[in-house]
Amino acid sequence: MNDLMPSITFAPANTIMSASEQIACQVPADYAGMRLDQALAALLPTHSRSRLQRWLKTGQLRVDGRIWRPRDPVFGGETISGELIAEAETFALPQDIPLDIRYQDADLLVLNKPAGLVAHPAAGNWDGTLVNALLHHYPELANLPRAGLVHRLDKETTGLLVVARSLQAHSALVAQLQARHIERDYLAVVNGLPVAGGTVDAPIGRHPVERQRMAVVPGGRPAVTHYRIMRRFRTHTLLHVKLETGRTHQIRVHMAHIRLPLVGDPLYGGRPRLPPSASPHVLEVIQNFRRQALHAERLALSHPVSGVRLTWQAEMPADLLELVAALEEDAKV
């Protein structure tokens, strides 16, 4: 191997050692005039810009043996070298919380998240989260942003999540997510009877008054949701929903925006819609469904190292199955 090509060595996956990486690479001539941090981002795409800037400032990355500033321009031909330590980025208490792992290898995990599990610590949920569980079962994830979480699901949403197990995998999966190459398909039970499937293309941002909510707002971030009808009941519909973008609460906001709010959604659902003259059992099931009826059923992505396309599916959880069964029972009356 050319000794000026980047080489990478990671600590064993079953330790909590910091990941280390030996770097030796040369700045191409056609990079002349670029900022150093921009050149590094192109040369070392498996690392975030903030991490590269930090390594430059601490001297872990050197240019021709000297410390340069991130903003310094390169001329082409410089040698960038260093022994890099990926310091811990996730600080949370490891907790022995069971995980439903559907796939794992040296580079990634795919898990099926239950309802009630918050993705990562935040105000009001400093422990008992998915991140706490991941750090218990996979201590090395402390070296990755958010313990390797590439995307997240709301607390009460169930289904499939991907977790990176290395810096290389994390950067590759984040890039796929940003390029919209990760497919995320959901099942949702909504109040209402759409005539047909369709697409919601409406920007989402923070609600101007109720700050804990998101909303369709002018100047929000672009958001696109596709949906099609799977089963139609008397007053409700089971939808297949596909995300093109991944904004906070996107499906919940978009469905409420087109007057098809999710059953049980505490923020956007409003009052539950009850089928007229429904049986006591059906009414009880609908009224007692106290979370958004949303399940991340399918996940597809390209493996961050091999490039092989992989797909996973997760069955509906018991409470959502019970809801659908009750609505089917009502539809037969």
Rank of each mutant, 00 (worst) to 15 (best):
N2H: 13
L4V: 15
S7D: 13
F10R: 13
P12F: 04
E21M: 14
Q22M: 12
Q22P: 01
V27I: 15
D30R: 11
Y31R: 02
L36Q: 02
Q38S: 13
S50L: 04
L56R: 09
G59E: 07
V63P: 02
R71I: 00
V74S: 11
F75R: 15
E87F: 09
D96V: 07
I97E: 09
I97F: 08
R102C: 12
R102F: 02
Q104K: 08
D105L: 04
A106I: 00
P114L: 03
A123C: 01
A123M: 09
V131C: 05
Y138A: 06
Y138I: 00
L141I: 02
N143S: 14
N143D: 09
H151T: 05
H151W: 10
L153F: 09
K155Q: 14
T157M: 05
T157A: 10
G159C: 08
G159V: 14
V163E: 10
S166A: 10
Q168K: 12
H170K: 09
S171M: 05
V174Y: 00
A175H: 12
A179L: 09
A179V: 03
D185K: 12
A188Y: 10
V189Q: 03
V190H: 01
G197W: 01
A202M: 01
G205T: 00
G205L: 04
R211P: 02
M214N: 04
M214K: 07
V217K: 10
R221D: 13
R228N: 07
I229W: 13
R231H: 14
R232D: 11
H236E: 11
L239K: 08
L243Y: 06
T245P: 11
T248E: 12
I251R: 01
R252L: 02
H257S: 07
H257N: 13
L260N: 03
G264N: 09
D265K: 05
L267C: 01
L267K: 11
G269M: 05
P272C: 04
L274G: 04
L274Y: 02
P276M: 11
S277R: 15
S277M: 10
P280S: 12
V282F: 05
V282P: 03
N288D: 14
N288R: 14
A293H: 05
A293M: 03
E297A: 14
V305D: 06
W312H: 15
A314R: 08
A314E: 10
P317C: 09
E322G: 00
E322R: 14
A326I: 08
